[in-house]
Simulated assay, not measured.
Amino acid sequence: MSKPTKPANSQTLLRGLSVLECVAHMPRSIPEIAEEAGISYQTAHRIVSVLTDVRYLRQVDSRLYGLGPKVVELGFAGYQQADVTKIAKPCLTKLAQATSDTVHLARLEDGEVIYLDKLQSRRPIEITSRIGGRKPAVSTGVGKALLLDTPEEELRQLFKRDRHLMKVKTSEVEWFERMRVYQDGGYAYDLGEDEHQIRCVAAPLRDATGRIVAAISVSSTLEYMQQDRMEALIPVVKSTAAEISRGLGFV
């Protein structure tokens, strides 16, 4: 008995999706699309024409076609529907259980950190952050992680604006030296700049475009967070951040 064939409409849809995938990474000509998609030139030409008319494809030059603006619009719509808090929660829970420390998730707004989630430490300590609360980005670990891609001039303006809020007096030269180390390493510390006795290790989260959209951190008091433990936590926090970022579409 022969296998049932897919309805014509389904075949057309699948071929259209196949054409989109063919040009996902670089513009291609119709003959190239036909060959890669395994369809005839006539079928490829027809599908390309329809997709171009409805803006899913665009003509790059006289012979090449690439992804059109409609695909970009849908991509951003999909991103906006992705709730970073929900995506991050399972990973944050595992991180909190593994470290026994306070775990934060935060985003950046106008140079300030906004806490999206907080998992309390199992240790007998209290950290003043709260979900929905704000703190200066220049003094917090998550804040500095959120600023890792920020141009230097913007960083200077932000530091000058908020340096008076830092609990540990830090010169501009010293702060930027640390930021360059963090930028190279893909992590950030809070060395008591936000609260004297609190230490923190943080890392950024990236979306499908590679943009930093949030950051996570592990925080505790100096008693539990000496320099050697902070260094040991860097790969742990970065690994968790990478896992969450993959959930956000970052490759």
Rank of each mutant, 00 (worst) to 15 (best):
V103S: 04
L14K: 10
F159N: 02
L248Y: 06
F250E: 14
R123T: 03
S40R: 01
R107V: 02
S121A: 06
K167M: 09
T240C: 15
L233K: 03
V19S: 05
A242R: 09
T209W: 03
K238E: 15
L191S: 14
R107A: 03
I212M: 03
A215L: 10
I39A: 07
Q11F: 01
L92R: 04
E223V: 08
T85R: 08
I127A: 01
A215C: 06
H196W: 07
R246I: 05
S2P: 07
P27T: 02
D101F: 01
M230P: 13
M225T: 03
R161D: 05
L116Q: 06
L57P: 12
G75N: 12
T43F: 08
P151F: 04
Y189T: 05
D53P: 00
P151I: 09
G141R: 04
G143N: 03
L165Q: 12
V50N: 02
A188Q: 04
P69F: 07
S239V: 01
K169C: 01
T99F: 12
P136T: 11
C200D: 04
K135E: 14
V60A: 06
Q120K: 14
P235H: 12
K118L: 15
E73M: 06
D228E: 15
L158A: 03
C91H: 14
V48P: 00
D110T: 03
S100T: 11
S245H: 15
E243W: 09
V251P: 14
A214C: 10
R206I: 03
Q197G: 08
A44P: 03
K89G: 04
T140L: 08
D228H: 15
Q80N: 12
L158H: 12
A214I: 01
R46H: 05
R28C: 06
G247C: 06
K3G: 05
D53N: 05
V218W: 15
D190V: 05
E152P: 00
L205P: 08
D149H: 03
L205Q: 09
A106F: 00
D228R: 15
L13Q: 14
H164G: 05
A241L: 12
E243G: 01
K169R: 09
D184K: 14
H164M: 02
R55Y: 04
E177C: 00
A203P: 11
L205M: 09
H164V: 01
N9E: 10
G249I: 05
Q11V: 12
G143R: 08
V213I: 14
I125R: 13
E223I: 13
Q197C: 09
E109S: 07
V138Y: 12
G68C: 02
K89A: 15
P136Q: 02
I127M: 10
R58A: 12
A98K: 09
I87Y: 09
V50W: 02
T99W: 08
T93S: 10
I131P: 01
S2K: 11
E35L: 02
K70C: 07
Y182A: 01
D101A: 04
L105K: 11
E152G: 01
D149R: 02
L64F: 11
D110C: 04
T170D: 00
A8C: 01
K6D: 06
I234Q: 12
K89F: 15
V50F: 13
Q80L: 09
K3P: 05
I87P: 00
S2Q: 12
S217F: 13
A77Y: 13
